[in-house]
Amino acid sequence: MSETQAQRESSDDVEVRDVIDPATVRRAPRYKAFFMTGALVGLVLGLLLSLYLVGSPSGSGLMKPGVYITVLTAFVTMVTTLLAGLFAVIADRRSLRGR
């Protein structure tokens, strides 16, 4: 390697601290965590709600209560997961507001 190439390569090396300012690092939400939390909350909430509705006096006439429990739990889980995704998008937009 010639001396000019070595000088050129050494001059291209830059410290990361000199280039990146920690104050400008964007804090984006982790979408997976939002979706997983929404799904878990939806499962618990859906099971509790469907078991309450099936056990109530108005739910005594149901032919197959397991189907109602499954469908209601799946619906509540879907809604809460979508709401969690919406909250993640809103949090992401708020992180961009000051820029």
Rank of each mutant, 00 (worst) to 15 (best):
S11Y: 13
L43C: 08
M63V: 14
A23Y: 13
T81S: 05
G55A: 13
A28D: 11
V71S: 08
V79L: 04
Q5A: 13
A88W: 00
A91R: 04
E15A: 13
F35W: 10
T70L: 14
L49E: 06
T73A: 03
V67A: 07
L40Q: 10
L45N: 03
G46L: 01
G85L: 02
Y68A: 14
T77Y: 01
A74M: 08
G85S: 03
S60N: 11
I69R: 05
L47K: 01
L40I: 09
F35E: 05
P57R: 12
F75M: 10
Q5N: 08
S56M: 12
L49G: 03
V14R: 11
V41Q: 00
S10D: 15
M36T: 15
D18M: 10
R17V: 06
R17A: 12
D13A: 15
T37D: 09
V67L: 06
R93G: 06
E3I: 14
G38P: 04
G55P: 03
S60K: 14
M63P: 07
R30Y: 09
L83A: 02
Y52Q: 12
G38T: 01
T70S: 10
S10P: 11
L48C: 10
A84E: 00
A91D: 08
A88L: 04
S58Y: 05
L47F: 05
Q5I: 07
D92P: 09
L96Q: 13
I69C: 04
V41E: 00
G38N: 01
V67R: 06
S50N: 04
P65T: 02
L43I: 10
V19E: 07
T24D: 15
E15M: 11
V44W: 00
V44Y: 01
D13N: 15
L49K: 06
S10V: 08
R26S: 15
L82D: 06
S2P: 05
G66F: 15
